[in-house]
Design a protein around this nucleic acid. Structure first.
Lengths: 333, 333
DNA sequence: CTGTTAGCGCTTTCAA
DNA sequence: TTGAAAGCGCTAACAG
């Protein structure tokens, strides 16, 4: 392993000088700079990020905690963060929290022990207090998909309630009056908010939500199929279905067809998230756009700006969902 | 930041002793061990992985290089690797190579500068020679999705040719004789091999591949739609379509429907990979199973075994694809 | 503009 | 079983 010593010796300069040419900041005469660079070349020198981190107390890496490493939603999130950070030669360390408090805390500790310069967190199970305490520990954090009053400027969130409202409204405007709801885990904030928005839309139409037509899924495709089957089994007719996310909507579509329903004629479906493949299911899914990519990029900018003094974009904390109308909602006259 | 010094002071023992209780290996009397652990508790000590890495010349992290951080295929891969490694408290550092030689090399350097203990590489653009040279540099590597004779024991791959063969065969057995092919980028090994398998199946039926019915896509959904449209525009009729992967198949399905074709009656489609959502498109996609999860887990085991001396599973280098028959292929009589 | 010199927090001989 | 001390490769004052 060739070190900075080898380089300094070969170039005939001091350690410090080599360090200076590596970290472009300080001025070094062109001549010495060139000598050093040549020495690095010839030796095939590769700086040791570990040693650098220890000495500078900065790892040039940001920890990213998300619920899962797979799935279209988190995939987009990771991709957006990594792309943005990479431009500044900053590294992302991803960890999965699996929507479980213990695992989330574990992952945070993991990231912290790695001495990340900042943390971008999409955590669901951990309490607000935990995050407040974490924030107080010193490592800058930015929270995605959650609103914490005391950490307002560090939270980047979507207006989920409005999203739920838009989804229901699109069904209501198409003339649907009995609408089933395929929710995500009810303990999750976004599930609750989306559901609240749904209820608000119903209320505007003087309708009340039929609790028998609510199914609690887990945001995965499979729960979309079991959900639809359960809902059908209730025996209470419904002409439309609002889903907590697109994956469950896709599952529900498959199950509905299996049950002999024609889509969208017999059943209108609306999703949530607007993941990449929602345009490729049949019928093309009408859904609510969740601008994950933009939100993830915004979280990254927060870090770039507050931690690395880079990029002077202004921070937008709350994003608005929008309805993406496609073919899965049938107008009922 | 509380350090090992603080702990040693509080516990009234030396640095070395604290280090010993952290790294369970050496023997420490129960009494002192307890004292130290209590001190750690009280101080809220969290070991500094960076410092540990510098001192021990081991980072307890493995670098994972994949083409993209999103998409169902890579998502599964990351997930499988992280899950496996986490059991041993080893960290995964993911980087994207974007199927571009320069970016792949860049990512490798990035991972190397991070002093990963090993590298798991799914690289497409970089040459075999580059990988051989990299391997010679000392950091253990295992290569996914590629066969390099000189690195045979470190390669975990799928028999893509056989996969292409199975896909074509399933179409041929259903009575199709004019089959279009929606390929991935032709410069990629797997694309070529799958296509070779396709040709072999045709040959068995005394058929030759009609080059006009070959379209080169990019493995993304969108190229599935443009691909199908192009293929249709050729004017040469075909009753079936084999796709380089499931994403393109999904895109092709959407485009086919758009063009007024009934699926699967007017056009039979077979995919490749068997990604999670292939069961949720309509009609359910018949495809070739790519056991990514198992293969990624196998790569991880290789690392666990050769680098960390853990887990004594035997290594399987070549995996076999299997046909997953669903509803997208129509029997033609 | 360049060199000297302490560390950063931990591991690891080597003695005791 | 425990402690002392020498680094690991690099940064960051502080001089010069």
């Amino acid at each position: 392993m060739v070190t900075i010593y080898d380089v300094s010796e070969r170039a005939g300069v001091s350690l410090a000088t080599v360090s200076r040419v590596m970290n472009k900041n300080a001025r070094v005469s062109d001549k010495t700079k060139e000598k050093v660079q040549r020495a690095m070349e010839e030796l095939g020198y590769r700086p040791n990020a570990i040693a650098k981190g220890l000495a500078s107390n900065r790892s040039n890496s940001v920890g990213v905690l998300i619920s899962e490493l797979h799935g279209p939603f988190y995939g987009m999130m990771m991709s957006a963060i990594e792309t943005e950070l990479r431009k500044y030669d900053i590294h992302s360390i991803f960890a999965a929290g699996h929507s479980d408090a213990a695992k989330e805390e574990d992952a945070v500790n993991f990231l912290l022990s790695r001495r990340c310069d900042a943390l971008i967190l999409y955590v669901e199970a951990v309490s607000d207090e935990f995050l407040e305490a974490l924030n107080a520990q010193g490592t800058p954090i930015v929270v995605l998909g959650r609103d914490i009053k005391s950490l307002a400027t560090q939270c980047i969130n979507l207006d989920n309630e409005q999203g739920g409202y838009l989804a229901a409204k699109c069904l209501l405007e198409a003339g649907h009056r009995s609408i089933a709801y395929l929710a995500g885990p009810l303990w999750k904030h976004d599930t609750q908010e989306r559901l609240a928005g749904h209820r608000r839309a119903l209320a505007e139409y003087k309708l009340t939500f039929d609790e028998r037509l609510l199914y609690e899924g887990d945001f995965q495709e499979e729960s979309g199929v079991s959900g639809l089957n359960q809902l059908l089994a209730v025996g209470e007719p419904f002409s439309a279905l609002a889903c907590g996310n697109d994956e469950m909507a896709a599952g529900a579509m498959a199950a509905a067809r299996e049950a002999g329903l024609a889509l969208p004629d017999d059943l209108s479906i609306v999703g949530f998230d607007n993941v990449a493949y929602s345009r490729f299911v049949f019928p093309k899914l009408s859904t609510v756009n969740y601008p994950v990519r933009d939100m993830a990029a915004m979280a990254t900018h927060w870090v770039l700006r507050h931690v690395y003094d880079q990029g002077r974009l202004s921070i937008e904390n709350t994003f608005s969902p929008q309805l993406v109308g496609r073919d899965s909602v049938h107008r009922r006259d």
